[in-house]
Design a protein around this nucleic acid. Structure first.
Lengths: 160, 160
DNA sequence: ACTTTAAATTTCAAGCTTAAAATGAATCGG
DNA sequence: CCGATTCATTTTAAGCTTGAAATTTAAAGT
């Protein structure tokens, strides 16, 4: 196996190390400060962004999780009063999922803390680093489907 | 919230998108080609690297997973005959975990396929990209503890 | 109308993961 | 030696996640 392939493996391990430790910190923040979890937050973020009328299929595609998984997390959010399912008019197979008012309020507070926390975790990344990363990640995932945006996505409509 | 903080959030989302889709592909490969899972592979990779005498605590630190999680995955590997627990001489609290011969053989074949697969997934990353990424990821995780190497780590003793 | 095919969602079993509590063992200060 | 603390691991309960099978509905094709 080529030296380049070994370097790719090393880089992949580094990438995993970063995402896992950042996720561990965010998970901890969400648990202690908001008594919630990362998967719940991800779903709420996706619902908040689209504000309303997201189908279960869209949800699982956005978050890159299985359809059964989306069902389970939405079930729990619904039980907590943070999300609501409504039958889609016109197609009885489809349901529309949305945040409730309580869910929206709860999410906004979570999102602020989440962004602050993340900002601290990535404080050593400069504008130049973010530029490079954007280019590199684009190159790594050339077939990126915008509907695959995996959660957290609270921010930004600004030009990339 | 600052524009920089919003950019950090966007970058984080991109990073997650990449790691999730790469993980999904590797998971699929391991399942179809080797009838195993990513967590099992990660544990086997850690054991293979150290070849022998890894404690449960070291394992969970290396993989950035909880101690209870390490227990569960090692339990299953042991049941499959791929890993072995032996009491540590001198300290009756501690156990040493190692791959069995069968585990070693199985792992080597998985690791080859895993590296090839990953090489394909990251084929668009050039040497220059890998250089940049190494520097950026180092900056992002300045307190990186080398014992936190999260799995997969099969390759490489070469200089970083 | 009827069969087939595809689509959206849920259900299910198995496994993964975490945080917290429990167990058992070593260590340390008195 | 003793009590307290710390350490290594396992256990437990709850929740997460997947892939596959099952349901239900819609859309075609005949």
């Amino acid at each position: 196996m080529s030296a380049l392939s070994k370097r790719r493996l090393r880089t992949w391990i580094r990438l995993l190390r970063l995402t896992r430790s950042v996720e561990a910190d965010l998970r901890d923040y969400l648990r202690t400060a908001h008594d919630t979890t990362l998967p719940r937050f991800d779903v709420m973020a996706a619902l908040y962004r689209q504000h309303g009328d997201v189908t279960m299929s869209e949800l699982s595609r956005m978050l890159l999780v299985s359809n059964g998984n989306a069902t389970a997390v939405v079930d729990r959010l619904e039980k907590d009063g943070f999300a609501r399912r409504t039958p889609a008019p016109g197609d009885r197979r489809t349901v529309h999922v949305a945040l409730t008012d309580a869910g929206t309020v709860a999410f906004q507070s979570m999102a602020t803390g989440h962004e602050e926390r993340l900002d601290g975790l990535l404080e050593h990344l400069t504008e130049a680093d973010l530029d490079s990363l954007r280019d590199i990640l684009r190159r790594a995932l050339p077939d990126a489907d915008p509907s695959h945006t995996p959660a957290h996505a609270v921010a930004d409509k600004e030009p990339t």
